[in-house]
Design a protein around this nucleic acid. Structure first.
Lengths: 336, 336
DNA sequence: CGCTGGCATGTTATCGATGCCATATATGCA
DNA sequence: TGCATATATGGCATCGATAACATGCCAGCG
C-alpha cells in the first residue's frame, strides 16, 4: 500500500534515491541507505513491480508452455528451466495446454499481455502459427522437445527421438524378437512420428517383413497406452515385444498386460521412451531410452536468456541432445 | 509492440475509445468498433496488462502457494482452484514451497510485488507470520488444508483430519487389530498432528493399552514413508496394521512392506489418508479417507473471490469439510 | 588555482492504459 | 418546446516506478 514516495518522504530523500537503494544502482551514501531501509521496514513497503516493469520494459518473467506437466519427463524439464531461470533472477510461469492448440493460443495471448520477457514452448501442433504470433509481438521464443516446419525461424532444443527409438527396437531385435508393436502418440506430434520412424528403420534394417510391423497411434497418456495395448494383445499371433513411445503409454500398457494375466518380460517384452516415475513400486524395472530432460530445460533457458541479453548468435540454433539407453529387466533375455 | 495510441491513430479515434472497445465498456458505435478491431488486427496489437493493472489496481491474478504440487491431493485441489478462478476471469499462479517456510516467505514477497489480487495459502508452518505479512500489505488471503493459531484472523478451508483418522483406525480395530502403527508427517504440521490425535482417540476409546500405540512422525513424502515403515516392521512383535497419514507415506510404506516380502493385507493391513494416484498399477486397492480436494480448492477460491468483491461477511470463516471413508482391499478381512 | 571526475542527490518526463470529467448530438417525454 | 437522459467521443491527470538529464560537492592533480 505504501509507495516509493511514502518511503522517500519518511526517509527525507527523493524517490529516485529510494529506487537506487532498493536496486543497489548508482550512488548513495551509507547513511541514506540506512534511513531508507528503516523507512521501508517501518512502512512495510513492497515495491510495485507493475510500475517498475512498465517503465523498464522488463518483467524478469519467463513462461514455460507445455503439454502435460504431470508427465515426469516434463516435470523434470520444468525443474531444469526453473533452476536456470531462478539463478539468473527470473521467475517462471508454467502453463499446461493438454495438447490443445486452442489452449496454447489462449495462454500465449495472456503471456504476451503480461509482457513476459521470453517464452519456452512445447508446441501442441507442428505448425509455426504459435511461434509466429509470439515473434510478431517481439518476444523471444525457444521451442522445446518437438520439431517445427523448417520455415519457422526459431531456436529449438530437442532430443534424438529417431535414434533413441531405433536403438530400443534394435535391442529387441537383437534379443530375437521379430514381431514388435510400437504404441505411439498423436500422429501430428513430431516426437510420436519420429519414434515410429526409428522403429521402422530398425525393422527394415533387420529385414523384417512389413506385415510384422505393428504401428499404433494414440495419445501420450496412460489411458491411451492401456487401450492400444489391449488391441495389440488381441492380434494373432500376439507380438512378443512392445515399444511404448513414452512413459505414460508404457504405464498404461503395462497395466493392460498385467490385466491380461501376462508377465513382463517372460510373456511379452517391453521397452519405453523416457524414464518412468519412481512411485510405481516396480521401478527401476523398465528398459528405456532416457532423454536428458533436466539438461533440455537448462539448455533451452540458457539459450533464451542469451537472446534476451543480446548475446546469442544471430542465426537460429537447433540443439539436439542424445538419449541414453538404459537396459533393465522389462526387455528380458534373448529368446531361444 | 504497438500501443493503444498506435491503434487509436490508425482507427482515427482517441485511445480512450479503443480502450472502451477492448473492454466492452461505456459507449461506442458499431462503426467505431469495426474500425478499431480492424486496426488491432492489422497491427497485431496486444494490450499491455502492466499498464492496465497499474491504473486499475487490479491484476486479475490469484496465487496458490502450496507445499507439494506433485502430491495428487494438491494437484486435484489446484484444479479446483484453477477452474473456479478461471470461470471468474482470473489467472492462477502456482508456487511450490516444499514445506519450507523460507521458500514460502520468498514466494509471498514476490507475489505481493506482482500485485496479485489474492492469495490461497497452504502454510508450511503453523504460525501466522506469513498470513500477517500478506494482510499487512492489504491483500486478501485464504488458508487451505491446515489450521493456524486462533490468533490469526483469516479465512480457513480444511478437512476433518481428526475424524477421518479416527474412523480409519476404528475400522482397523473393528477388524480385530490391536497393535496399529501410525506413520505421520512433520509434528509441526497441523494435519500430521490431527491425524495422530484421531488415531489416539480411537485407540483410547477401544481401551487399547498405551504401550501398543506406535506413533511415528516424519515427512509427507514417499521416502519418509519407506523409512518409517522399515522401522515399524522391525518392532517386535510386529504391528498387524499400518495407518499412513497421507498418500505418499502410504506408497513408501507399501514399498517397504513389499521389499520385506510381506503381503498386504494378508500379513499386514494398511489404510491411508487421501486417495492414491491412479498410476500405481495396483489401484484402486487402498482403504482410504478421501478428502474432497477439488471442492476444497473450489470453496477456498469462492471465498477469496467473494472477499475481493466485498461480498463476504466481515467475520472470518472457517469451513471444515468431511472426509469420505472408502473401504477397499488393503485393510483386509476381520482377524479371527 | 582551476579543471576533471567520482560521488551524492534531485527534477522532470515517461512507460501504456484508464478514471474522471467534459462535450456534443440524438432521443424521449412532460 | 424544453429539459432530462441515452449515446458517442475526447482531454487530461494519474497509477508507481525509473530513464535521462541536471546539479552540487569535494578530492586530486597538473
Amino acid at each position: 500500500m505504501a509507495t516509493i514516495h511514502d518511503v522517500a518522504k519518511r526517509a527525507g530523500v527523493a524517490s529516485i534515491t529510494v529506487s537506487r537503494v532498493i536496486n543497489n544502482s548508482g550512488y548513495f551514501s551509507q547513511g541514506t541507505r540506512q534511513r531508507v531501509e528503516a523507512a521501508i521496514a517501518e512502512l512495510g513497503y513492497v515495491p510495485n513491480r507493475l510500475a517498475r516493469s512498465l517503465r523498464s520494459k522488463r518483467t524478469n518473467i519467463l513462461a514455460l508452455v507445455l503439454t502435460d506437466i504431470t508427465n515426469p519427463f516434463f516435470t523434470t524439464l520444468a525443474r531444469g528451466v526453473e533452476d536456470t531461470a531462478s539463478d539468473a533472477g527470473f521467475i517462471v510461469i508454467f502453463c499446461n495446454t493438454d495438447e490443445s492448440e486452442t489452449e496454447e493460443q489462449k495462454y500465449l495471448q495472456v503471456l504476451l499481455q503480461q509482457q513476459v520477457d521470453g517464452i519456452l514452448l512445447v508446441p501442441a501442433r507442428s505448425t509455426s502459427d504459435s511461434v509466429e504470433l509470439v515473434q510478431k509481438h517481439g518476444t523471444p521464443v525457444v521451442v522445446l522437445d518437438r520439431r517445427l516446419p523448417s520455415s519457422a525461424k526459431v531456436d529449438v532444443v530437442r532430443c534424438e527421438s529417431v535414434d533413441g527409438a531405433y536403438r530400443l527396437v534394435q535391442l529387441l531385435i537383437g534379443l530375437g524378437h521379430r514381431q514388435i508393436a510400437v504404441l505411439s502418440g498423436p500422429k501430428i506430434v513430431s516426437t510420436a512420428e519420429d519414434r515410429v520412424t526409428g522403429y521402422r528403420q530398425a525393422m527394415v534394417e533387420a529385414g523384417i517383413d512389413n506385415r510384422l510391423q505393428l504401428v499404433y497411434y494414440g495419445a501420450f497418456t496412460q489411458s491411451s497406452g492401456y487401450e492400444m495395448a489391449q488391441q495389440v494383445l488381441n492380434v494373432n499371433p500376439r507380438p512378443t515385444a512392445l515399444f511404448a513411445a513414452n512413459n505414460l503409454i508404457a504405464i498404461g500398457a503395462l497395466k493392460a498386460v498385467r490385466d491380461a494375466s501376462l508377465r513382463v518380460p517372460e510373456d511379452i517384452a517391453m521397452v519405453s521412451f523416457d524414464d518412468l516415475p519412481a512411485n510405481l513400486l516396480t521401478s527401476p524395472f523398465f528398459t528405456v531410452a532416457v532423454q536428458p530432460a533436466y539438461e533440455m530445460g537448462q539448455k533451452a533457458t540458457q539459450l533464451l536468456l542469451a537472446r534476451l541479453a543480446g548475446k546469442a548468435p544471430e542465426r537460429c540454433q537447433e540443439v539436439i541432445l542424445p538419449t541414453d539407453l538404459v537396459v533393465r529387466q522389462s526387455s528380458g533375455q534373448a529368446l531361444n
